[in-house]
Amino acid sequence: MGDIAKGALGGAWTLLVGWILPTALNLALFFLTVAPSLQGLAPLNRLRPATGGGTALLFLTGSLLLGLVANAGQNPLYRLLEGYLLWPAVAYEAGCRRSRRAKAALADRLSLLRLERREREAGELPPEDAERLTRLREQPHTERAARRDRRRTAAQRALVHERLARYPIADDQIAPTRLGNAIRRFEEYGHDRYRLDTQVLWNELTGCVPDQVRRQVEIARTSVDFFVALLYGHAVVCFLAVLTLATAHPDTSMLWSTVVVLVLLVPVWYRSAVTSTDEWAAAVRAMVNIGRKPLADALGLKLPDQLAKEREMWTMVSRLSRIPYHERASALDRYRAAGEGGPT
């Protein structure tokens, strides 16, 4: 009974912090900055509570309902920021090209610093590495960035590694936005390392890992949810503030100040959401690494002792879950555990 209560409270906490709290903050911002200019509108006057207790109840109810609605619609909200929803094909391709260039530029900066360090330590590089070092030094943008990197400390240069790590390994997995790439990098982690398609087998995987690992993933995502909800709420309040400027008696200075401040804050929350994906990515990575064996056991499979064979097994499992059954799927029989139709 205690475990059930703990699980329910844990789920409520992620919902509260991830969606209801930022919704409440945005609703409070609306009441403080935009609502006073709407006092002359008759429909809103009828909805306005007559007492302070009624106002508090309206605020709490509105925060709860709007937060639940935002939570229910989180998939399209995320997909819009990731670049998958409502993006024209031209904008999508342009964003992907820009992301590939940014990833390549970061990789070149790190390669230049690494080759220069090896050159200092060894005194001379192999011909292939020496040629690559010369080519990188001849690139104006790379050399200009490297001059700044050389003056930085090791901890500061590690931030460049973090920025590069927020991109998927494979270029064909690149998304048009920074948030899309930051999320896509851990969506492809299981497939890149083990050929385990976590997008297809997500429910099976989360059902097999220890509760602590699954909880880490939920908590890590809550931080990203918070900034995403805050960002969208700011956009809505900003839009309502612009519309309110057309009313009969708007507080022009307050409304324009609100619009300017929110427009400046939206990129901050977006960047914060991107940065917060680092912990989410680490939690998903841990879940894949730790959950592979329990998942194989739950599926009646025996995890091979060789990585190449394990990758082959997960390829067949992922394919079996993703596409209709084919007779070739019987090749998975050699990985079935004893008592599950496999060899004894």
Rank of each mutant, 00 (worst) to 15 (best):
R336Q: 09
W87N: 13
P49F: 01
A70T: 10
M313W: 00
T315I: 00
S111N: 10
H141F: 11
L201Q: 03
V160A: 13
R328C: 09
K6M: 12
F239R: 10
L240P: 03
P36I: 09
D225F: 11
L85V: 09
M287W: 04
P127K: 07
G7S: 12
R109V: 00
Y325K: 14
R118Q: 13
D211C: 11
E143N: 04
E312I: 00
V268W: 07
E187I: 07
Q199Y: 04
M287G: 02
P250K: 04
A282F: 02
M313R: 02
I219K: 14
S330P: 07
R166Y: 09
A122Q: 14
T277I: 00
L110K: 01
H161C: 05
D333M: 12
H326N: 10
A329C: 12
T344G: 15
L38F: 05
L205E: 03
M1P: 01
L307M: 10
A50P: 07
L255Y: 05
S253R: 13
R322P: 01
L44M: 15
V317A: 05
E131D: 12
D108M: 06
L32K: 15
D129A: 14
L41K: 02
A337P: 08
E218G: 12
G10V: 01
Y167Q: 05
N71H: 15
L125S: 11
C96D: 03
R292Q: 05
F226H: 14
V274I: 03
T258D: 03
L9M: 02
L77D: 01
R163N: 04
R46I: 00
A158F: 15
L231K: 08
M313D: 02
A338T: 10
R137L: 15
A91N: 05
P343L: 11
R137D: 13
L16Q: 04
T23L: 13
P324S: 04
L115E: 09
M1F: 00
G339M: 01
L320T: 04
R184K: 15
E187Q: 10
F59V: 07
W87P: 11
G83P: 06
L110Y: 06
S318T: 00
